[in-house]
Design a protein around this nucleic acid. Sequence first.
DNA 1: CGTTCTGTTGAATACCTTCAATTCGCGTGG
DNA 2: CCACGCGAATTGAAGGTATTCAACAGAACG
Lengths: 227, 227
Amino acid sequence: MKVLEMIAEIPLFTGLPEEQLEELLGIAEERRFERGQMIFAEGEPANGFYVLRSGRVKIFKLSSEGKEQILHIFGPGEPFGEVPVFAGERFPAYAETLETSEAILFPKQSFMRLVKSDPSLAMNLLAILSKRLKYFTQLVESLSLKEVPQRLATYLLYFRGSDQENSVDLAMAKGQLASLLGTIPETLSRILNKMTARGLIEVQGRQIKLIDRRALEKLAKGEKLLA
Amino acid sequence: MKVLEMIAEIPLFTGLPEEQLEELLGIAEERRFERGQMIFAEGEPANGFYVLRSGRVKIFKLSSEGKEQILHIFGPGEPFGEVPVFAGERFPAYAETLETSEAILFPKQSFMRLVKSDPSLAMNLLAILSKRLKYFTQLVESLSLKEVPQRLATYLLYFRGSDQENSVDLAMAKGQLASLLGTIPETLSRILNKMTARGLIEVQGRQIKLIDRRALEKLAKGEKLLA
DNA sequence: CGTTCTGTTGAATACCTTCAATTCGCGTGG
DNA sequence: CCACGCGAATTGAAGGTATTCAACAGAACG
């Protein structure tokens, strides 16, 4: 019963009739992962996709020299690994937990049957995939058209709690943030320094106070304030 | 009748019953664009999405300084601009023709009604969006984890005609290829030079002959052969 | 309280970009 | 058919941003 409620709360499944939820429950498998455990690897054949129940998961690519580029960081309620359900057979990237996590695995075949029979489930999926495409669009823009200080400023402004809340909790190691921004820890460290020196932010561990929001916005737009 | 046949040939619509095709025809609008014409701009509210009938279209982002990053280049039969149909209301990037092109515009509302009523149309869409996510995954990997020579080698190997065919027709200006690879014409030019000097390729205008496939594959994998 | 992982700092280097000057290529018009 | 003109492409020199490598400091964890 607990799991059924849980499934009903997943955004992907909102608006589904009880009947379909029961079916989903029928095909769902619960999985538990330790912190730092690999959930799947790039190139691995996909048996299904996951919905995260607790914890956090990073989706990433690796270069030939071992450098990592994080594509997504997902939290509770978010689905991941859906691409190979509908295109190709293999996971296009790696997935690893950042913390001890629980996830629900939905096997591919049974899930596809459900999608075909339920238009609103299909619509939910289309919305999720479309949002993700939009997100990638921004990621590419960021990586290709912006320099690291710009990317960081954009990130900080985007992830600040509320409009009032002038601080950001990174909620991850700085090295992970570097990987998310498409750079390395050394570079991130230097830029955090410069931004602090210029009075834009204050850093205390994983808490970052946004001091000069105006300047951060200018930076995010492309002005080179750190030169 | 001609347009109906045309619609039936679009991969997105394969497997649809005649009845649905008729409906699609009912809501479709034909559009014609000159070479270099903008089809939509980033941030613009979307009234619908397009399927390209002839010609070629580039989807791209612009930096604050006007540098362009091409996300996709689409040819006949391919849909574009679907993201705002299912997520958000605005186009997340620019679309501009590379040649004189014809496209069919499907208005958002009517199309969504069709998708809801036809599971196989929804499945086709899910497959297309998933493929695109996979493609973005590779684009991000390329931009973030590879250097330009690697990206070029990967591109050339990927777009060579057949396995036998040892030449690639760029089918676009070199400057556009540069933008697709996330760099600028000067850099691309220098790298084409080096690759020619090393005997990897031969360049004749927009035709590129792949001479040393083995070496190109090594390059694509990350070996630094041009140093 | 020590071990290990994370983060910081400095110096050297690499890759790519910028800027400026030509050169090339091609369509147009004389 | 040739000459012109304009955008595309190339080349060189200089500069900038980020990475690499190495050493150290600090925090977290058992």
